[in-house]
Design a protein around this nucleic acid. Structure first.
Length: 113
DNA sequence: GCAATGACGCTCT
DNA sequence: CAGAGCGCCATTG
């Protein structure tokens, strides 16, 4: 069963995250035209199958940290994948979003900075 | 349909 | 900068 349309948009946005950068759940939600549904973004990530091509590991929370998950240790995997792409972690395991944050660019004629 | 859960974010202190 | 509280609402049982 295909994922919900909303999920498809979320995945589409996540796929646009460039390598070596990260986006926040809220950011992805807004880019997916689902403002305020940051939680659902996380839920969509949780619903991803193993072996997916969606770079879910490039999605972190607003604090620039890897969110705690139900399964301990899995967060280390995400961190590993990010470091492998060149994303650096600061003290406290926080990623400086000012440096590695994805500067989102909306398509479809939406003006961007 | 109802109640509980959750890979979150913003505001206030 | 760090911690606590409230709001958000789709998904799940």
């Amino acid at each position: 069963m295909p994922a919900s349309p909303a999920y498809q948009r979320i995945y589409a946005v996540v796929r646009r995250i460039p390598r070596g950068r990260v986006a926040t759940y809220g950011q992805v939600a807004r880019l997916a035209r689902l403002p305020g549904r940051a939680r659902q973004v996380g839920y969509a990530m949780h619903a991803l199958p193993s072996g997916t091509r969606v770079p879910w590991h490039r999605v972190v929370n607003a604090e620039g940290r890897v969110s705690r998950r139900r399964v301990p240790g899995a967060e280390l995997t995400q961190r590993m994948l990010l470091e492998r792409e060149g994303v650096g972690f600061g003290p406290g395991g926080k990623i400086p979003l000012t440096r590695y944050g994805w500067k989102a660019t909306l398509r479809r004629g939406v003006a961007n900075g």
